Amino acid sequence: MTILRSFLDWFWNPDVWLPPGIGWNDIKPTEKIKYCDYGDLLYPIPAALCLICVRFIVEKTILIPWGQCLGLKKSHKTFASLPHNEELENAYRKSRSKLSYKEMEVLAKKTDMEVRQIERWIRRRLAKDKHTTLTKFSECGWRWICYTASFGVGLYVMWDKPWFWDINHCWYDFPHHGVPDDVWWYYVFGAGFYLSLLITQAFDAKRKDFWQMFVHHLTTISLMGFSWVCNFIRIGTLILIIHDCADVFLEAAKMCKYAKYDKLGDVIFAVFTLLWIGTRLGVYPLYVLNSTLIEAPKIVPMFPAYYIFNSMLIILLVLHTFWTYYILKVAVKAIVSGKVIHLKQISLYNLKFFSKTKN
């Protein structure tokens, strides 16, 4: 217990987490004012589990039937008649598509099949395991619902907050910022949602940017938790609402693509592209980062946690730039090749790219 106590005292050193001259007792919650409490970091865990359960119900009762009404199929018809073979099935589960030629020769002897037939069976088995368009549609639908709800609630919660209109209020009298109940719930929902995305990422349709999105979700959750402990709650709410804005249209555009409403998807994706560039590469660096990196030091004495917080914000900006680079790369390549002329066609190419690369 003595060792644990010493470690906790070292870890929660106020000289690291808080501005000079401020101790934990100075921002301890009271009956009159509610400050951020590190114990509240546990609430996003049950929130995430609840969201996963709600997602299962919503997908089964609303999104999947909706997709079927739009003509999406529940299974791969082409591979529905794939003959079952216990030997091949066991080998497939152990090594997936990584069977060597010698291993397939051994299987050929056991099953009285040719190696070419086994190769064809494995290809069809892999294709059967792929997520259907209906599954991808329902996954996008769930994220669209959550992003829409989060952005709508965020606007409602933030509309009467002074720091929403003047970002310097994020630093005035810091860290003596109480947390209103509506902001508390907004933060818990946001953290729970991103935690649920991190948990379910392993089960959702696999994307080529799996690890980039994993880092994104992990960074976002860490950033929210870190900002809560340091009472950077005001700047955290601004970051949340900025990020939710464009994602609403991305998920809607992908749903349109899966349902083959390409023209509508083009229009929505064009709106998304403008919002993405405007918020992720415009408002975020020029408004938020400018405030945290340049304006904040003029108002608040600096401390170690401040630099860690800004490092996380910069990682998010790097990820934004990474994704924007590939959007523009695909668009430029299409224009140079002469395959794209109009904006709606450019957005269609980007939409195809993002349906492969973003959750």
Rank of each mutant, 00 (worst) to 15 (best):
N350F: 01
I122R: 09
L274V: 15
Y307T: 15
D181F: 14
P46D: 06
F354P: 00
Y349T: 04
F210L: 11
V318N: 02
V153I: 13
G154N: 08
L18S: 04
V58E: 02
P180M: 05
I122M: 06
L195G: 09
T200H: 09
D40S: 01
W121S: 11
F174E: 05
L351R: 11
Y147K: 01
V215W: 11
I199R: 03
W121D: 12
W142M: 03
T219K: 03
K208D: 14
F174W: 07
Y287R: 08
D129F: 07
W159L: 05
I314E: 10
N350T: 06
T132N: 10
G225R: 00
K356N: 10
C36T: 07
M104V: 02
D173H: 11
Y38M: 05
S222G: 12
S311R: 05
P65S: 07
A202W: 15
S100P: 02
R5I: 10
E139M: 09
F137R: 06
L264W: 06
F7N: 08
Q201A: 07
I235R: 07
L348G: 03
H176P: 05
K73M: 14
G23H: 03
W171V: 10
K298P: 03
F354T: 07
R234I: 08
L316K: 01
L72V: 05
N359H: 14
K161E: 15
Y38R: 05
D40R: 00
K352Y: 11
Q201C: 02
A334P: 00
G154A: 10
K77Y: 13
K352N: 14
T135L: 15
R125S: 03
D9W: 01
K358I: 08
K109S: 15
K98S: 12
N25W: 04
L281R: 01
R124M: 12
F232W: 11
K254V: 00
D15C: 08
K110I: 04
A47R: 04
I57N: 09
L63P: 01
F322W: 14
K32T: 12
S6Q: 13
R143N: 10
L351N: 07
L351G: 03
K254E: 00
V106N: 15
K128Q: 13
G265R: 00
I299L: 14
T324V: 05
E89F: 06
K98D: 13
D182A: 08
L198F: 12
L250A: 00
C146L: 08
R123P: 01
A48D: 01
V340K: 06
W163V: 01
K344R: 14
V248R: 02
V106A: 15
S311L: 12
F151G: 04
H177C: 05
Y307Q: 14
R5D: 15
W144E: 07
H169L: 12
C256W: 07
M158S: 09
L63F: 07
